[in-house]
């Protein structure tokens, strides 16, 4: 057994022990998402348009994450519709951001890792970056959409404007530490590098890798923040349509 298999097995045992049946379906979601990510890499490397691959497989990732982690069908449906629309909106935001930022591909700090590789591979690195950024936001979009849809259902008719604003702030607050520290992990090595080589502030700010990582965090924060009011709006539309 290699290390990855051992880790997966341990996760399965833990999730079933803590979550029972639901834990098992959560584990299933992790495995399906893993296969989808592998498929995405293979398709993009195989010459398919990276943005198209991200949009199509992103839809499946959202469906997997939402429907396998929520038992309430109503909540799941609302969350799925909302997150799909937010994903499309994010595609636009990410497209604009990537165009202005010039952060696709590799930076000078990557040169050691690139030694011996041919870089003229005929696949658009800006497109890969858009796909990467989109995939990194999906988990956060799904999480926030489910939380809002479930929260609105609990609050029901009792929801006041102040109550909704408080719920919005709490859900965004919850997602932010996850996102922030999740990306901070990537910064750890980079910051050690910058500190050790004494990069001045202006150089860090304009550094290709730093700018890319920071922009990806900001995309995710924007995605979560958009998901919350948007899901509220969808809930309201669905309720309006039924009564």
């Amino acid at each position: 057994m290699n290390t990855f298999e051992a880790l997966l097995l341990a996760l399965l045992v833990l999730m079933v022990a803590v979550g029972g049946k639901q834990g098992f379906s959560n584990f299933l979601a992790v495995m399906i998402n893993f296969l989808l990510m592998m498929l995405a890499v293979i398709l993009m490397a195989g010459g398919f348009n990276a943005i198209g691959v991200a949009a199509v497989l992103g839809l499946v990732v959202l469906a997997t994450t939402i429907f396998l982690s929520t038992r309430d069908g109503d909540v799941a449906q609302t969350a799925f519709v909302a997150s799909l629309l937010v994903m499309l909106g994010m595609l636009l935001v990410i497209g604009i951001g990537v165009r202005y930022a010039h952060v696709a591909g590799f930076g000078t700090e990557d040169s050691e890792a690139l030694e011996g590789y041919n870089l003229l591979i005929g696949v658009s690195f800006p497109h890969i970056l858009i796909a990467t950024a989109l995939f990194s936001t999906l988990g956060a979009i799904a999480e926030a959409a489910v939380a809002v849809a479930a929260g609105m259902k609990t609050l029901g008719a009792a929801a006041s404007e102040a109550g909704l604003t408080q719920m919005a702030a709490e859900i965004i607050g919850t997602a932010l530490n996850t996102l922030f520290f999740g990306f901070f992990r990537g910064f750890a090595g980079l910051f050690l590098w910058f500190t050790q080589l004494r990069y001045p502030f202006w150089q860090v700010l304009n550094n290709q890798i730093f700018a890319r990582e920071l922009i990806e965090v900001l995309f995710s924060m924007i995605a979560v923040t958009l998901t919350v009011p948007f899901t509220m709006w969808i809930v309201q539309r669905r309720q309006g349509g039924r009564s």
Binding site: Q22, V30, V61, T65, L68, S69, L138, G139, E143, A147
Partner: peptide, 10 residues
């Protein structure tokens, strides 16, 4: 489940 998905995707 969703929280694991957030980190996993990133």
């Amino acid at each position: 489940g969703p929280l694991i998905a957030v980190l996993f995707m990133i």
